[in-house]
Design a protein around this nucleic acid. Structure first.
Lengths: 174, 174
DNA sequence: AGCTGTCAACTAACTGGTTAGTTGCTACTA
DNA sequence: TAGTAGCAACTAACCAGTTAGTTGACAGCT
């Protein structure tokens, strides 16, 4: 079967496993190709470099997460809980993002992510102005806190969705 | 100057920079030796391996942090704030721990850290039993939450000590 | 005090294996 | 048969770890 898109997809699947397990520096191009069942040269044909593969992978995964877990400004505990659950189901994404943050810092956040985050802050601010949710924190801080709670599993193996939701409920209590 | 301890100290200093910047897989032994201004073979003489060097470095750094920021069960917001501040002053430690978690999972927590954490949970539980602090969460969850809040800077560049303390105050509000 | 044997600290050069990235060729498909 | 997908084989650079040999301080002896 000679199918460009299918090959790219297999490489991206393999890359998700590899990068999330070993990080960018620790990932091995040969292993990715072997897992994908195709040749290493394909990575360079389709993604340019190891870093290019990582970047495209991260973008795809982040975009999917943004789509699958839309924000609900009037139900921030639920949003945090759903995010938390999504990270549990797809533990690779959180690891991917963590490695990316560690190696590139905050400055090089993927554009799509930064854009989506801005819109979320605005949605939260809107809900606050209309008095639908707590204004105890400004919109940026509030969203930062909610997102931070959703990655509680990064800190502790004892994290549960219920704990995350209860925490956010307390954070935004009047 | 032929001084074993001084050489070990220089290597550990260099290793802190290298490992916190590049991670374990990304760190380069030659670079550590060059930064320390001594020979690479000394790393193998004194620490056995690249991983051995990392492990000893992490242990030292964690022990220091445990000593420098003792828990105050009756003032958990303050404890979170002090931890946060300490991480800001020593950003390398948080990165070291993050890399270690990513590469080794929760299972291989350094023994000293696990032991110290147990004692902290007990101290929190004690304070709760004596009615000195909120019992809204069980002691383990509560300490997990407090520690998680102290690493808010890992999530967002907007984090401040005031924000961390205010958040913890809300989490433990009656 | 001067001489010397000993050993820990240190070094330069090397090794064997690994790794990201390349290239020239084959085979499939339209 | 023209163009594209795919691959085996290759390369140059890199990297963790080793080793054979050097240096310097100090203890013990005279």
């Amino acid at each position: 079967m000679r199918d460009k898109e299918a090959t790219k997809a297999k490489l991206l699947d393999a890359a998700l496993e590899e990068f999330s397990q070993y990080g960018i520096a620790g990932a091995r191009v040969d292993r990715i190709a072997a897992t994908a069942g195709c040749n290493k040269a394909m990575i360079y044909a389709y993604f340019g470099s190891k870093e290019g593969l990582f970047d495209e992978l991260l973008k795809i995964q982040v975009d999917r997460m943004i789509q699958e877990v839309p924000i609900t400004p009037e139900d921030l505990p639920g949003y945090a809980g759903r995010l938390f659950e999504a990270y549990l189901e797809r533990p690779q994404l959180l690891r991917l993002v963590a490695y990316h943050r560690l190696e590139n810092g905050f400055s090089e956040v993927p554009k799509a992510e930064a854009e989506a985050y801005k819109h979320k802050i605005e949605a939260v601010a809107q809900a606050q102005m209309e008095g639908r949710i707590s204004a105890a924190f400004n919109a940026t801080n509030l969203l930062d806190l909610v997102v931070h709670m959703s990655i509680l599993a990064f800190s502790t193996p004892n994290a549960t969705r219920e704990l995350v939701e209860r925490s956010v409920r307390r954070l935004i209590a009047e």
